[in-house]
């Protein structure tokens, strides 16, 4: 039987059929359709069953955080032991730190603003630190070496303090990102953009 000229049962009917609660004409139509040997619907039912069995079994338990951290550290130690270089992580250099200046190219927002500009390699990171509700949002944009408005960037930026990540943001295609709610303190920012890794060793967020 061709599957191109038939109406497949709605997902809801298939779910009800699977759960044994489908009744009346819908049940007749669904069962008749399935008996006809509709391969896509059979496959969908199987997929549905696998999904629901997995939902019923519950999420996998997390591995202990200590073991996960140990696994993460293996990479650097193995590469060092083998004499292999990790992708270079560039230390960003602060070239501008203006209190109360507005990074208009990045965004316009209310609140106290501090603008900072770093460079790493051929890249620039243009950031505004905006005080909000006792914390600070970092609203920023990574700018590539080419002034190409159609460039599509990929990467992410994380804020660290006391050895743990406190905020993380993927880069949007235009290089913008936002780290929200940093409390007063000293942070390191680490990130990557199109395979280039960078680090801002110290970002002091004032009270």
């Amino acid at each position: 039987m061709s599957n191109t000229d038939i109406r497949h049962p709605r997902l809801r009917w298939l779910v009800d059929h699977r759960d044994g609660v489908l009744a009346g004409p819908r049940r007749d139509a669904t069962e008749s359709h399935l008996r006809s040997g509709c391969a896509p619907c059979e496959a969908r039912l199987l997929r549905l069953e696998r999904m629901l069995v997995a939902v019923a079994a519950g999420p996998l338990p997390a591995a202990p955080a200590r073991e996960v951290r140990a696994g993460e550290r293996l990479y650097a130690s193995t590469h060092r032991a083998a004499g292999l270089a990790l992708a270079a992580e560039l230390d960003a250099v602060l070239v501008l730190d203006q209190g109360a200046a507005l990074a208009a190219s990045v965004r316009a927002a209310p609140g106290d603003v501090r603008r900072m500009l770093w460079t790493f390699g051929e890249w620039e990171l243009d950031a505004s630190l905006i005080a909000r509700n006792g914390g600070v949002d970092v609203v920023a944009q990574v700018l590539g070496p080419e002034d190409d408005p159609d460039a599509v960037l990929a990467g992410k930026v994380t804020a660290w303090t006391a050895g743990r990540t406190v905020a993380e943001s993927p880069l949007r295609a235009d290089g913008r990102f936002t780290l929200r709610g940093l409390r007063p303190g000293v942070y390191a920012l680490r990130g990557s953009v199109d395979g280039t890794r960078f680090r801002i060793p110290e970002l002091v967020v004032d009270a």
């Binding site: 999420p59 996998l60 338990p61 997390a62 591995a63 202990p64 073991e67 996960v68 696994g71 993460e72 990479y75 650097a76 590469h79 292999l84 270089a85 990790l86 992708a87 992410k156 680490r190 990557s192 395979g195 890794r197």
Partner: peptide, 21 residues
């Protein structure tokens, strides 16, 4: 394989529950 430690950490965090389970 390109030496990106962040990618390794993401791989570990994603699949640690499976390995543990």
């Amino acid at each position: 394989l390109d030496g990106d430690e962040d990618a390794w950490c993401e791989l570990v965090r994603c699949y640690s529950p499976l390995v543990w389970a």
